[in-house]
Design a protein around this nucleic acid. Structure first.
Lengths: 162, 162
DNA sequence: TATGAATTGGTATTTTCAATGCCTATTCAT
DNA sequence: ATGAATAGGCATTGAAAATACCAATTCATA
């Protein structure tokens, strides 16, 4: 189970924007902070802009900022937006060209959808304001670990550095 | 958000095995039913066998079958087993070679883990027995649709075909 | 007890597709 | 006009999927 890097970068960029919702931040500054090429980030911005999630302004003193207050942006909706057409399994993403020989009597799909809904609902408990991150971090707080029942690979809690 | 095809095929194969837990079914028959090369399926079998999920028997009248009653196999545990080391985002799967510039003060990761746990927990509400599917289907039941709150791509309910 | 057929197990190769990076054109503000 | 930003196209890279091939094992039977 994996989110695309597209989504990953998009979320991280929004974390930065959420910390400074008023100012127009340039895509170059964001790309630099995320260690990512500006051109690549531009594609993500484009997607979020078309969806009405961020507002962009061209020209001098331009840049982008959130279209809504970060308190009103729920993470589940955000992930659903960024993941767009990547279904959980192949027969979700592309029902037409689907070679699944079990189609029509598959009782697994409903369960997978319910699981996906649970995933998004859990994310919806937080908003962008909860994960905002200033461009120049204060190195005060780290991620609080929420336990996972199963053994999916979890990154160890990284140290804040020396 | 996507499961690997490896997981997808593994789940579908287990659906077939669960419908006939006693008999030893050959991998060739399963591969044929799933429209998949036997060699590719063998890798999945091998993984599940090493994890103690299926028992294999070589030679004439060999084949494979579930190691436990299907009622005792929860879907969340199964997905966690099959997805092995594919983390939800890159910094989960490979914390060492992680180029994320926000490491150490990222409040997103904890939310993603909580969402992942919710996903698996929802799947754990069902067992393999709930999704068992005979090799020669009776065409009686289809997947009951559980609604999804968000707009992730959902496959439409496929018709049983003419 | 040999022998052969059927089956799993393991390794290497090809293919496919997502992800990335680079380049150019266009638009807007000053 | 000029500078700063978006917008889109195209080539490259990389990882995962799928396939093919060979080796090892086991059972049934003569």
């Amino acid at each position: 189970m994996r989110l695309s890097n597209f989504t990953d970068y998009g979320l991280r960029m929004l974390m930065l924007l959420a910390a400074d919702p008023e100012r127009g931040t340039s895509s170059a500054e964001l790309a630099s902070t995320l260690a990512l090429s500006r051109n690549h980030l531009a594609k993500i911005i484009q997607h979020l802009s078309q969806a009405g999630m961020v507002e962009t302004k061209r020209g001098g003193n331009g840049g982008l900022r959130l279209a809504k207050p970060p308190q009103q942006v729920r993470l589940g909706a955000l992930v659903a937006l960024l993941e767009q057409d990547r279904g959980l399994v192949a027969c979700f993403a592309d029902p037409s060209a689907n070679g699944c020989t079990l189609s029509g009597q598959c009782r697994l799909k409903a369960r997978l959808r319910a699981g996906e809904a649970a995933f998004l609902a859990e994310l919806d408990r937080s908003t962008l304001a909860d994960i905002a991150l200033p461009l120049q971090p204060t190195a005060s707080d780290a991620s609080q670990a929420l336990p996972s029942t199963h053994a999916l690979p979890s990154a160890q809690v990284e140290s804040a550095g020396p």
